[in-house]
């Protein structure tokens, strides 16, 4: 439709050449194939993402599936007030934030480091084998990982504790200790997702030419300076984008993983927004309330995305757009 009307305006455009608007029209027309290329994707977003977007408004209702959206009662900000006044709100916020920071500091760099290390391997067979091995855990479900974790960490006969006991003479109760909960969660994430995370960085490194390296060698750069001055900069754009996008989901944590590793002795540090929402939203069927919590997280996410993108641009770094 847009294209058709553009064509009919072609004549007018020709007559009024020179003005600002006209050059815009011209630009639109010159890029008509680009718009055509973009159209199917745009339709997808409108149809499957924006058409259902009214669901966000459930947060301001007492949504009842049987009555439907139009018949359900509107309650304004009641759910948000309930959420913020929840006696556990600050504990949940604190746990969520700490885990999110740990994730950012310890997990986020891991795939980058491994990609850099893999990039230095020149025996192709070795490189490919390792690459395949490290990405296997990505395919295991959290249920299986939790059960394997138990097998390895339990104080009664677990392999890890056997080693710890051999060296220190004592066992560590990893599974029930609140102090070990966060390291354990982050450790699991690193184990499961690092290999998978390298895939995208290796793709980015595939774009670095041998000539760049050779030029660096000519300049007398050693191994580490080459890594620092050639390899890492090649990854910069990808790193920045992944970082900014990760911030958008900053408050999201794997519900299933945390739920499976939580017990009576470590719950104090284990409860996060996502586990809370699961119980309230899914098991108690409080649609509106869980939508409200989701909306709160989304608002935080959008602020973080645009904030960090703005900062990145300020610092002359590649941003999101």
């Amino acid at each position: 439709m847009g294209l058709l009307s553009l064509k009919s305006k072609k004549k007018i455009v020709n007559e009024e050449e020179g003005s600002n608007q006209v050059s815009k029209m011209k630009l639109l027309f010159r890029n008509r194939y680009l718009y055509l290329l973009l159209l199917p994707g745009l339709i997808y977003f409108l149809l499957f993402k924006y058409l259902p977007m009214w669901g966000v408004l459930m947060a301001f209702q007492d949504y009842s599936p049987f009555l439907g959206f139009w018949e359900s009662k509107w309650v304004g900000f009641d759910h948000f007030i309930n959420f913020f006044q929840n006696p556990d709100f600050f504990r949940l916020l604190r746990n969520t934030l700490i885990l999110a920071f740990y994730d950012l500091i310890f997990f986020f760099p891991a795939p980058i480091i491994v990609a850099l290390l893999l990039n230095e391997i020149r025996v192709q067979f070795f490189k490919r084998t390792i690459q395949t091995l490290v990405y296997v855990p990505h395919f295991m479900s959290w249920v299986i990982i939790a059960s394997i974790t138990y097998v390895f960490l339990t104080t009664s006969g677990g392999a890890v504790n056997a080693i710890v006991e051999y060296f220190t003479g004592e066992t560590i109760n990893f599974l029930s200790s609140p102090d070990w909960f966060r390291p354990m969660i982050i450790g699991q994430v690193i184990w499961k997702e690092t290999g998978w995370g390298t895939v995208i960085f290796l793709a980015a490194l595939a774009g670095v030419s041998t000539e760049q390296y050779e030029a660096a060698i000519m300049d007398g750069a050693g191994r580490f300076r080459r890594m620092w001055h050639v390899t890492l900069p090649a990854l910069r754009g990808t790193i920045m984008i992944l970082l900014i996008l990760r911030l958008g989901n900053f408050l999201d944590q794997g519900f299933q993983q945390i739920y499976l590793m939580t017990n009576s002795l470590n719950r104090e540090v284990a409860d996060v927004f996502d586990t809370y929402v699961y119980f309230v939203g899914i098991t108690q069927g409080a649609f509106s309330y869980s939508t409200a919590v989701g909306l709160f997280k989304a608002v935080v996410g959008i602020i973080l995305i645009y904030g960090s993108d703005y900062l990145a641009k300020k610092m002359k770094q590649p941003g999101l757009f």
């Binding site: 993402k49 924006y50 259902p52 669901g55 966000v56 996008l245 989304a298 959008i302 995305i305």
Partner: peptide, 22 residues
């Protein structure tokens, strides 16, 4: 505008029931 439109959907979504309706 288009890019913002895309980024927005990464963070906000209508949820299960509205999507099912579509």
């Amino acid at each position: 505008v288009l890019l913002n439109l895309v980024v927005f959907t990464m963070i906000f979504n209508g949820g299960m029931i509205p999507t099912y309706m579509v």
